[in-house]
C-alpha cells in the first residue's frame, strides 16, 4: 500500500509568565494590570515520506513551531478592546492544495474526520472540505477553512485498482498554508 507513513512527534513546552503585561495586542487598554502570558513551543517531526507519492509534501523533516506571545487578559470586556477597522473577525485561514503528476484520472478529497491505524487512514468522506475528480496533469485550489480545522487528510483514489494515497496536513503557524503533492 502506497500510503504515507508519517510519524509526528509533538513536544510542547509551556512556560507561564505572570505579570509581564502588554504585548500581543497593540490596542489593549486599561484592565490589563494583571495578565498572564503563555509561550508555547511545539516541535513537529515527520518521518521520511515515500518518494513516489509525497515528495513535495512537508519536505522539512523537522519543523519548529512557536506561537506568538499570547496575552491572556482576565475580565477583558468587549467595551475594553478596540477592533481594527479592517479586522472582520473572520475565524478562517486559507489553504492552497496543489496536485501535480497526474497521469490517469484520480479522485481527491480533503477531509477533516479520519482515524489513523497501522499506517493507513480511515477517512469519513461525508466530512470533507472539497472533493473533485482530477484528470488534468495538475490541479490547484485555495480553500477557506475554519480556524479549528488544523488537522486534515488528503485522500487520493485511483480508478485502476492501485491503493489509495493519504497525505496528512497539520497547520503550522510558521509555514505557509500549502499542501503540495506530486503523484
Amino acid at each position: 500500500m502506497n500510503t504515507l507513513k508519517a510519524l509526528i512527534t509533538i513536544n510542547t513546552l509551556c512556560i507561564i509568565l505572570i505579570g509581564c503585561g502588554g504585548g500581543g495586542s497593540e490596542t489593549s487598554s486599561e484592565g490589563n494590570s494583571k495578565v498572564s502570558t503563555t509561550v508555547t513551543k511545539t516541535t513537529v517531526t515527520q518521518a521520511p515520506i515515500p518518494q513516489e507519492n509525497t515528495e513535495n509534501v512537508n519536505s522539512e523533516k523537522e519543523k519548529l513551531e512557536t506561537t506568538e506571545l499570547i496575552v491572556q487578559s482576565k475580565n477583558t470586556r468587549i467595551e475594553d478592546i478596540n477592533v481594527e477597522p479592517n479586522n472582520t473577525l473572520s475565524a478562517t485561514f486559507e489553504l492552497t492544495v496543489s496536485i501535480s503528476g497526474v497521469s490517469d484520472k484520480v479522485y481527491v478529497s480533503l477531509c477533516d474526520e479520519f482515524t489513523e491505524q497501522q499506517n493507513t487512514y480511515s477517512v469519513q468522506y461525508d466530512s470533507c472540505l472539497f472533493r473533485t475528480p482530477v484528470s488534468s496533469s495538475s490541479y490547484s485550489r485555495t480553500l477557506k477553512i475554519a480556524n479549528h480545522n488544523t488537522d486534515l487528510v488528503l485522500a487520493v483514489w485511483h480508478y485502476d485498482g492501485r491503493a489509495p494515497q493519504f497525505i496528512r496536513w497539520i497547520k503550522s503557524n510558521e509555514l505557509a498554508n500549502n499542501l503540495n503533492i506530486a503523484l
Binding site: 478562517t92 477531509c111 477533516d112 474526520e113 469519513q124 461525508d126 466530512s127 470533507c128 472540505l129 472539497f130 472533493r131 473533485t132 475528480p133 485550489r141 480553500l143 477557506k144 477553512i145 475554519a146 480545522n149
Partner: peptide
C-alpha cells in the same frame, strides 16, 4: 468539484 463551506458535515 464539490467545494464545501465550512465542510460537508
Amino acid at each position: 468539484t464539490l467545494n464545501y463551506y465550512p465542510s460537508s458535515a
